[in-house]
Simulated assay, not measured.
Amino acid sequence: MVEAAITASDSLWQTIRSEAQRAAAADPVFGKAVASSILAHDDFVAALADLIGQRLGGGATERARFTSFSRDAFRGEPDLIEAAGQDLQAIARRDPAIADLLPPLLHYKGYVALQAWRVSNWLWRRDHRDAALLFQNEASNRLQVSIHPAAHIGSSVYLDHATGIVIGANVVIGDDVTILQNVSIGRRDELPARSPRIGSNVFIGSGATILGDISIGDFAKIGADTVVTSDVPAGCTAVGNPARLTNCPEPVAVA
């Protein structure tokens, strides 16, 4: 498993470096930024850790601290860097505005926020709670994305535009999920307080709110500004406030 993750990240890194070399050759001015962000590093871990440090740290000391934590996380758990690579490739597949890996790596704040969360979750699982919450706080302040370190998020996840995304503690999100801006996913004011469970291949439109002890099934779609407080079966589309179900692959019984 570890060797496979390292091999995949090496292959991805060579693709990113090739794109960076072409960009630097095509534009000498932009090339300086590319060289410092990508070509100055030996591998994907070093480049991504440095990018997280740049985006979250306000000064040299803070940047160094965030970079160090990130590098330790990615090298300590290679599956994290494998997931980071899958997240990056998912953007290239789903975003019609781009076809390469370099632009989202350098410029998509949702991507950086998600990788910062992966580091914070690594810290949280090792009981470094203060450091984990520091990552969440700075990602919220600087990137306008707040993901609690105790959330559970799969791979190939795309936070599109990303501004205003809030994901609470113990939320579960599967693989291949796309989440647009201003989405809130978290607990309701009820006891016991439990968080939503989002399946795989789910699309969540801008401004949607998903709350409480509910499940969103695989391949479901949540429309823009929809408020969801009850289960959405697999393959269904939920729209409106309160949410109503449509386009379900099978008839759904109404309670």
Rank of each mutant, 00 (worst) to 15 (best):
V2I: 13
A5D: 07
T7Q: 10
D10P: 00
T15E: 15
R17S: 13
R17F: 05
E19V: 07
E19S: 06
A20R: 04
Q21Y: 08
Q21P: 01
R22T: 14
A23N: 06
A25T: 10
D27R: 10
P28Y: 02
V29H: 10
K32P: 09
V34K: 01
V34T: 06
S36C: 07
L39K: 02
A40N: 07
D42P: 02
F44P: 03
A46P: 02
A46D: 15
L48I: 11
A49N: 10
G53I: 00
G53V: 00
R55K: 15
A60M: 09
A60R: 15
E62T: 05
R63V: 11
A64R: 09
R65S: 12
R65T: 13
F69R: 00
R71I: 07
D72A: 10
F74H: 06
E77K: 13
P78V: 05
P78C: 03
D79S: 13
L80P: 06
D87M: 13
A90S: 14
I91W: 05
I91E: 02
A92L: 00
A92Q: 08
R93G: 08
P96W: 03
A97F: 03
L101E: 02
P104M: 12
K109Y: 11
R118A: 07
W122C: 04
L123N: 00
W124S: 00
W124R: 02
R126W: 09
R126K: 12
D127H: 14
R129V: 14
R129N: 08
F135R: 12
N141T: 15
S146P: 12
S146F: 05
P149D: 03
G154L: 11
S156T: 15
V157W: 00
D160P: 04
H161F: 04
T163D: 11
G164F: 02
I167Y: 04
I167S: 01
A169V: 02
N170M: 12
V171G: 00
I179C: 06
Q181D: 03
N182G: 05
S184K: 02
G186N: 01
G186L: 02
R187M: 03
R187P: 01
E190R: 15
R194V: 08
S195C: 05
P196G: 04
R197P: 10
I198H: 01
G199R: 08
S200Q: 01
F203P: 03
I204R: 02
I204G: 05
I204L: 08
T209P: 04
L211C: 05
G212T: 08
G212S: 13
S215K: 10
D218P: 09
A220M: 10
G223Q: 04
D225Q: 13
V227C: 13
V228G: 04
T229Y: 05
S230D: 11
P233K: 08
A234E: 12
N241C: 11
N241Y: 13
P242C: 03
A243T: 05
A243P: 12
N247C: 13
P249T: 07
P249Q: 05
E250G: 03
A253Q: 12
A255I: 01
A255D: 09
A255M: 01
